[in-house]
Nucleic acid binder design. Structure first.
Length: 479
RNA sequence: CGGGGCGUAGCGCAGUCUGGUUAGCGCGCAUGGUUCGGGACCAUGAGGUCGGAGGUUCAAAUCCUCUCGCCCCGACCA
């Protein structure tokens, strides 16, 4: 048991913070609610960026960069948008030693400034679709910041597209939701439920919002990414118009979709244990660490270390140059070196000691299960990647089994209250209520509608209003 | 914004009520030694304008006034 980490059973919030600290992922910044992402945390973000960016480009998107500062008047052009975001905006009022004529908002999201630019770039149906993504930082002055999950400033990507037809924009919205789902499940080993948001949980200014909802290991829900169908709302606010083939002027149909550094928080809370961070192999910047071990320092440096480097070199050829590290912290005792990698979440530890030198093998220790196995030197380039994939799958399966074991169905409001109170987790129920019903349920249970899963088309009687033909919803307490 | 709590070494705290020699303790850190395959131990040592400003006093971490910041609960919010 790690002595620097509070067990999650004792205090889940503290456990989460302890894991981050022990893994040196992030630290608090001097400004309230802001965090410093440390090198090992940033490497995880880089890993996320490179894989997602590849998937965005494969689906036809390109990257661009829009400015940090947005004229205040832009936000006010879309009524719901400004109502949703104004309270949490940071505003620049002075610059160059003078008060500005118009205050500038630090972007909480970029629909407005991008809408403004799109109106200039779009004139003909031939200019559509416009498929642009940007990687950047945004600022939302939240009341309750938590590292990675909700920080005042965070890093994210926001995709913004404009289309000629409603159908095409809706198709894009769902396509990117599916890109998110695929990335989260395949790379983060995070099972998510793709679904539609309820009225009360919709993005300010959107006609529909879709989400990927995940369950954390305390059974609470976390929204890991959203994709919005914006209809013609922003096109009207910013006059994004084009002439169709018939020569008529039409408003474009737009979408936006985003995922953020919050996903790092999701990975931490989905997989890690009381010893510290556990990273899924496909996400982990360092996938395997090789530890030369011996009390005979001469032998260590002259025989074992060169062999370790040789194995590392071969393995790098398979896994990538940054994915394998040789631990040369010989001033630490083996136990301390084990723990360091354990807490950093390195998926696989390969020990090379005197026993292994004689036998011509390495001892592999899995981070997720602590299982040990011996791998012959010649087999390392094939066995290690295989073992990493086994770990990847095991993490996903474990998280999925956990979610399924903690998902229950409620037919009545009483039943829902009891389930949320006693069991927690996800509660499915047929629901056809409106915004005020959602509010009443939240006040009574602390839970919100997470989504209406797209994969489940069953309908039934609403547990709250009694209406027929209600869609199946998932309720849960959420971050 | 309302209620409660806290600022003393990198971190966690004691000392403040009842002012009094060089402000302590644990962890961590540095050096040396013994250890070493799942968080060792011994010894030595470095590290502090006690959140800030002003005041009372022979004397302030301690008492008084002002001020800044942080945390928790609520409100608000994704």
């Amino acid at each position: 048991m790690a002595r620097n980490i509070t067990p999650k059973e004792k205090d889940y919030s503290q456990w989460y913070l302890d894991v981050i600290k022990a893994a040196e992922l992030a630290d608090y910044a001097p400004v309230r609610g802001c965090m410093v992402i440390r090198p090992d945390g940033y490497a995880v973000w880089e890993s996320i960026m490179s894989e997602m960016d590849r998937r965005f480009k494969e689906t036809g998107h390109v990257n661009a960069y829009f400015p940090l500062l947005i004229p205040n008047s832009f936000l006010e052009k879309e009524k719901e948008h400004v109502e949703g975001f104004a309270p949490e905006c940071a505003v620049v009022t002075h610059a160059g030693g003078e008060e500005l004529e118009e205050p500038l908002v630090v972007r909480p999201t970029s629909e407005t400034v991008i809408g403004y630019m799109y109106s200039k770039w779009v004139q003909s149906w031939r200019d559509l679709p416009l498929l642009i993504n940007q990687w950047c930082n945004v600022m939302r002055w939240e009341m309750r910041p938590r590292l990675f999950l909700r920080t005042s400033e965070f890093l994210w990507q926001e995709g913004h597209t404009a289309h000629a037809t409603r159908e095409e924009a809706m198709e894009e919205t769902l396509k990117m939701l599916e890109v998110y789902r695929g990335f989260m499940e395949e790379i983060l080993a995070l099972p998510v439920i793709a679904g539609e948001k309820s009225e009360g949980e919709r993005f300010p200014g959107a006609d529909n919002t879709y989400t990927c909802e995940a369950m954390m290991s305390d059974r609470k829900a976390l929204q890991a990414g959203t994709s919005h169908f914006l209809g013609q709302n922003f096109a009207r606010a910013f006059e994004i118009r084009f002439q169709n083939r018939a020569g008529e002027l039409e408003h474009a149909w737009t979408t936006s979709w985003g995922t953020s550094t919050r996903m790092i928080g999701a990975v931490i809370m989905a997989h890690s244990d009381n010893d510290g961070l556990i990273l899924p192999p496909r996400l982990a910047p360092v996938k395997a660490v090789i530890l030369p071990i011996s009390t005979d320092e001469e032998k260590l440096r002259e025989v074992i270390l060169p062999k370790a480097r040789e194995i590392a070199s071969t393995l790098k050829g398979v896994l990538g140059p940054m994915a394998v590290r040789v631990d040369t912290d010989f001033h630490l005792r083996p136990a301390d070196r084990f723990f360091r990698h354990l807490q950093k979440g390195v998926p696989l530890r390969l020990e090379l000691g005197e026993r292994e030198m004689e036998a011509g093998r390495v001892r592999a220790v899995r981070r997720d299960t602590a299982e040990r196995s011996d791998i012959a030197w010649e087999a390392v380039p094939t066995e290690v990647p295989h073992l990493l994939e086994t770990i990847q799958k095991a993490l996903f399966d474990r998280a999925l089994a956990f979610r399924e074991a903690n998902t229950r169905h409620a037919s009545s409001f009483e039943e829902m209250k009891t389930l949320l109170e006693n069991e927690g987790g996800f509660v499915t129920a047929f629901f056809a209520g409106d915004r005020s019903d959602e509010k009443a349920i939240k006040e009574a249970t602390g839970a919100t509608v997470r989504c209406f899963p797209l994969s489940d088309e069953r309908v039934g009687t609403c547990f709250f209003t009694g209406k027929e033909n209600a869609k199946l919803a998932i309720f849960a307490r959420a971050y």
